[in-house]
Simulated assay, not measured.
Amino acid sequence: MNVGMVAFHYPHAAYQEEFVSRVHRVAEEFRRTPGCLSAGCWVSGEAVVSIVHWESEEAFTASFATVLAAGLDLDYDEREARPREIHRLVAA
């Protein structure tokens, strides 16, 4: 069963470009993991949107563990104007 994640990030304007770069680096790492079908970065107004698609729940779990172990900057901090909105998806 395919699973996905859509995350809306709201960086302060001064950090928009930096945040887009951060999301691109994370997406690159996700795409390298087995079972990740796609990962990308989008911009919609003030939001930076990351979308990732996996072939299974197991691939999702393994992929996240790999990305976390890579030491990438994933932390929510003062560079963001408001909390992230993260939605897990399951194929219907």
Rank of each mutant, 00 (worst) to 15 (best):
A39W: 02
H24V: 00
V3T: 06
V48H: 04
R88Q: 12
D73T: 05
Y76E: 15
V90Y: 10
A7D: 08
F64E: 12
H12F: 13
Y10I: 07
V90G: 09
A65N: 10
R22D: 05
E57I: 08
E29M: 07
L74K: 10
A70W: 04
A69F: 06
A81C: 08
Q16G: 11
S44D: 11
V20C: 04
A13H: 11
L37V: 02
F30N: 03
E78V: 13
V67K: 01
A59E: 01
S50W: 05
Y10H: 10
W42E: 12
A91I: 08
A59W: 00
A70N: 06
I86S: 11
A47M: 08
S44P: 11
A13E: 12
A65D: 12
E80M: 14
R88W: 15
E55S: 07
G4V: 03
L68S: 09
Y15I: 07
P34A: 05
A81Q: 07
H12W: 12
S56K: 05
V48D: 06
E57N: 11
R32E: 05
R31L: 04
Y15W: 10
R25V: 03
W54E: 04
T61S: 14
V23N: 07
Y10G: 09
S21L: 12
H12A: 11
R88I: 11
V6C: 07
S21R: 15
A62T: 07
I86T: 15
L72M: 01
R22T: 06
A65H: 10
P11N: 08
A70R: 04
S21D: 14
V67T: 00
E28S: 03
E29A: 06
E58P: 09
C41Q: 03
D75C: 14
L72T: 01
V67E: 01
T66G: 08
E18P: 10
A13G: 13
V3A: 05
G71T: 06
S38K: 01
A91M: 10
E28H: 05
F8V: 06
V26E: 02
R25G: 01
G45K: 01
E58A: 13
L72H: 05
V67M: 05
P34G: 01
P11C: 06
W54Y: 04
E57H: 13
R22N: 08
P34Y: 05
C41D: 03
E29F: 04
V3N: 03
S63R: 01
V26F: 00
V48S: 07
G45M: 04
E18Q: 14
S38N: 03
I86K: 09
E57D: 12
F64T: 13
A70S: 09
R82W: 01
A13D: 15
N2L: 15
V43I: 15
P34W: 00
A92W: 14
E80L: 13
R25E: 02
P11E: 04
I51M: 07
N2M: 14
V52Q: 00
G4H: 02
M5C: 09
I86A: 13
G45H: 02
R84A: 14
T66S: 10
A13F: 10
P34I: 01
G45T: 02
A92F: 15
G35N: 01
R84H: 11
E18C: 10
I86R: 11
E58C: 08
F19D: 15
E46I: 11
V23H: 08
S21K: 14
D75L: 15
R31W: 00
M5I: 08
W42V: 09
C36I: 04
